[in-house]
Every structure is written in structure tokens, then in C-alpha cells.
Amino acid sequence: MRTIIMNCEVCQLKELEVEHFEIREVLRCILHTIVFHRALGLVRPKDVDLELFEITYVQCGDVEVEKKIDEKIDHFISWVEKHPNKKSQICLSFYEVKSKQPSWFTNKTERLYWEQWYLNLNVTQHPKSHLGKSHHSKVVIDPGDSGASEERSSRRAAVEASLREVLFQIIKFVNEKKDHVPPISEGVIYFPYEITIPSSSDSAFGMDMIKRMLQTGHPTMLS
């Protein structure tokens, strides 16, 4: 599979500082919002209220999309757990599949990337992050420590504001850049996309494997 990155619009989204327990909601919100803007087939939008923030985002209502995004988020979260206190980037790329003249040693299709969104997350290790494990409680109140809860709620408001900002960034980008979006094909709900998370691009495992293969020459590669 050849990949071509030409005339590819890139959007670097503002970095979000989130806690571990917020990763899932924040990523869902951002990824679905982007995909909804790239789901130009007939959709019946689905509103989703975030549990942690006063934000409603929109899904395109496709179960496959939801599944794929959730899976990627799972992978990302497990990557984050292995690599704490690290800034991380998730890339959502839209491409077109172009069939090519078949020839030796080449695949018949190639991907033409026309848009890439970079989500930048800074997962902080909050001292009380274990409290936040209770995912589904909107308000985590520590009655004994009003100062801490105040700080917590103000921090949450800050995260919410910056998430909102990122969402508006997406909307603005979608509004300003329309010419590069490929024509809509009949019956296709959303443009093909892929989500790249750190573990799949430059994880220790993957890089090690490539290095090892380069060094030793994997026997199966010769056959």
C-alpha cells in the first residue's frame, strides 16, 4: 500500500491538558466532531452530552465509526498507561483510495491523503487522579476539602473551555478549507479515514522490530 501525502491539509489542534480519566471523553468528542464534518453522506446526527463537561458533540450515527474510535481510544489509553507523563499526538487522516495499474511488487491501491488532524494531548498525572477514576460521576466532590474541590472544578472548567476552543478550531478549519475535500460519492457515508496513535507508529515494539530486521536481515524476508 503506497501512501501519498500531497495537497494534504493539516490541522494542528490546540494542545489539551487532560487527566487520565478525561482522555476518553475528550478524544471521543474531538474525533467524532471531525468525522461528522467528514461524513457527507446521508446521516442522522446523534447528539451526545459529555458526562464530564457541559458540552454536546455530534456523532454521525454510524456504529462502525463509533466502534473504530472507541477501539483506538482504548489503544491510546493503554499506551498512555505505559508511557506516563508524556505528550502524545493522535493523527486522524482522511484519504482517498485510488486504484493503480497493477505491476510487480506494488499494491493495486494507494492512499491519497488529503487531510490530517493532529490532536495534541498532554496527559497530566494529577496527584488525586485516582479519585477521578470514577468515570461516570459528573461532579466529584470532596466535602472535606473544599479548597481542593474548588481547584478541581476550576480546572475542569478550564479543560472544558479549552475543549470548546478546540471544537471551534475544528469548525473554523472546516469552514475555511473546503476546496480540498473530495467530491461526495453516492452511497458513501463518510470519507475513509485512519486514526494513528503513538503505539502504532513509533512504539518501542514497532521500531525495535524494524531495527532488528534491518540489522540482521530477517530470514523470512529473503524467502
Partner: peptide, 13 residues
Amino acid sequence: ILLLRSLYVTVRL
């Protein structure tokens, strides 16, 4: 279509 998609998201934000 793109404009209305972003309108749809915006009214909710």
C-alpha cells in the same frame, strides 16, 4: 453540506 454540518455542531456549542 459542509457549512450545514458545522452549523449543526455550532448550535450545540
